[in-house]
Design a protein around this nucleic acid. Sequence first.
DNA 1: AGGAACAGTTTTTTT
DNA 2: AACTGTTCCT
Length: 752
Amino acid sequence: MSGAPVAAETVESERLLLGLNPAQVEAVTAPDQPVLVLAGAGSGKTRVLTHRIAYLIATERAREDSVLAVTFTNKAAREMRSRLAALLGGEPRGMWLGTFHACSARMLRLRGELGGVPRDFVIYDEADRVSVIKEAMRRGGVEEKRTSAATVAAEISRAKNDLQDALLYGARAQGYVEVQVARVFPHYQLILEENRALDFDDLLLRAVQLLENSEEARQGFRRRFGHVLVDEYQDTNRAQYMLLRLLVEEHHRVTVVGDPDQSVYSWRGADIRNILEFQRDYPDALVIPLEQNYRSTAAILRAAGAVIQENSLRVEKSLWTDGPEGSPVTVAQFYDEREEATAVAREIMALVERGEAELGEVAVLYRTNAQSRSFEEVLLRAGIPYRLVGGVRFYQRKEVKDVLAYLRLLVYHQDRVAFERVVNVPRRGVGAQSLQQLVAASQELRVPFWELLSDPASAGVRGQAAAGMARFASTLEEVYEWGLSWPLVQVFDRLVEATGYRGFTRDGSPEGEERWANVMELRGLAAEQGDLPMAEALPAFLEQVALAGDGDQMEDGARAVTLITLHQVKGLEFPVVFVSGVEEGLLPHSRSLDTVAEMEEERRLLYVGMTRAKRLLYLSHCFQRHLYGSPKVAVPSRFLAALGSGGAVARWGTAPDRGGARPYVAPVASHGQPAPLMRARQFIDERAAAPGRSVPTEARFRAGDRVEHARFGKGSIALSEMTSGGEEVVIDFDTSGRRRFAVTDAVLRKLG
DNA sequence: AGGAACAGTTTTTTT
DNA sequence: AACTGTTCCT
């Protein structure tokens, strides 16, 4: 009788090891002790993590609800959850699986009062925080002209991630900037407190303080989490590191997975030493390197390895594959970012036409978000579908932030940042003057500002401003009262209507419709709260939104090219990868030239980008690039030197094609020295001499020709004419009407 | 109060 | 180039 379940359980756990290599098996089955998995790019780290969790459960060393699994992004958390669900045969129940920030927020909601954190705190995002910083600078008498709000914000963030609160920071402040910041910091905290708000960094800091200071909370969470697992451990900062230590100090059942070569978040306080010194922190640790790569071709791995090998601060580790050699890595130069984008778009379409790739398999990577622009313009014109990850993020759009501010005010009356944001949107005749008056009166009378709103006269506010405030207050109250018993979506609709926000946003312009579409998208997210009454649904919704961030809302697998930053692409993979702008000043970034550590992080960033590629990898740089609107000469990145001529092949010019490929040694600036202008001239000349440069003078199409367009499908040429820029055509599409294109940009195929 | 015109600044990466 | 804040005018 007792044999059967044991056998079943054995079979079950054995099944979890199928198809794993020896190192992976070792990591998955490792006993209850600290485990450090040094997982190279593409070595199956998520697999190891999820299988280990499932294995712990299958062998009854852990229960689903005693596991804490922490990731850095929501996306990674979701990925892990769904893969776990597949392994466990259902959604994990009671497991804590989320980002550091989400898990910390959850701890604070549960037990925060033990550490003096109000139960109903609001989470402030970057924009909210900047406006608080500015207010704090005014109060602290620090001029924005001398110390920018951004500097102060970054410094405070750094301090908190380093577990310094205002008091500690003030005591240690040294030098001009720190002293200035020390004058702002206490005011900043005070304002947050007045608004019952925590910023992102507070979530971590306060969670650590909670565990440190409250025996009850500490014991509670330690008992709760019998096993703790962490993804991307190389990116942990001091606060996150301490949080972990506090949680696992007694039982040491902690598994961390990471790759020092992919540590690219030091600017956010990540400390690579956390992973490098794991064995010192946990002397009984088991260290398991995963070096077999299942993602990339040998050619790509060799190139990436050559780049990363130049770093001095690393744990020696070399990836290998038993897969095919694959095509050589391509290094290419173009005239400027426009041509770079055009060439990339053409190459993408060439690959698609030859059946070598689908649009959804291609990613274009770049260092800075600003670079996405040229690609967007070209892809848009060419009608190639793309998805932009990050960029002007959904939650940062004005209209989305406005509506969220309204929603926040419904539950958190004390949220002055939200109030100031929307009290006069749409216009209600409330200006800076009357706002100041309101705040002053609120302090003088010791009455919270929101209680003065319904009777602004008592605060000394007069005229249309008073009327506007009163109207604002009564509208919100009305919606709130009415909404208490309704689902969130209904409240949402009523809110945008009653406040006049809908009419304000949809002003009849196309941009207005675009804005409204965003508001409606937000509404769709609110609708996910279902039929829960607003009182429950709204705080949950706001929390979800506050912690969401990045390109979370983007659906994967679309049949579209992906545009994404090198930071955001970490953890993803694509059959075809273009890394653009591999230039001095961009990669390495001009702000990272000061120290070796910064420089090496930049190199890791390129390494991360290169190792995303499965089959084809292109690295491109330009001769010239626009910065702040004006053109600047660009120099190939020093990182390209590592590639030498060993198998790397360049394609020159605007329209690279396989026939025109020729061997190429990347010209590289000696350390820190921009290449002389002579070098630049030579580039231009070579460019001019390169094939595919001249503007075609003969029309490819005639009226009546049948063509197929990458995006719009089949159609007939209605008109073709030659302009100074080349051929332009007007096409009547079978399904989508008439459109005009420049042939050089549009991706057209002649039919028949 | 609110708009227009102007000046100055910015762009590294994100939970 | 795009965005912010300031100043001046209505």
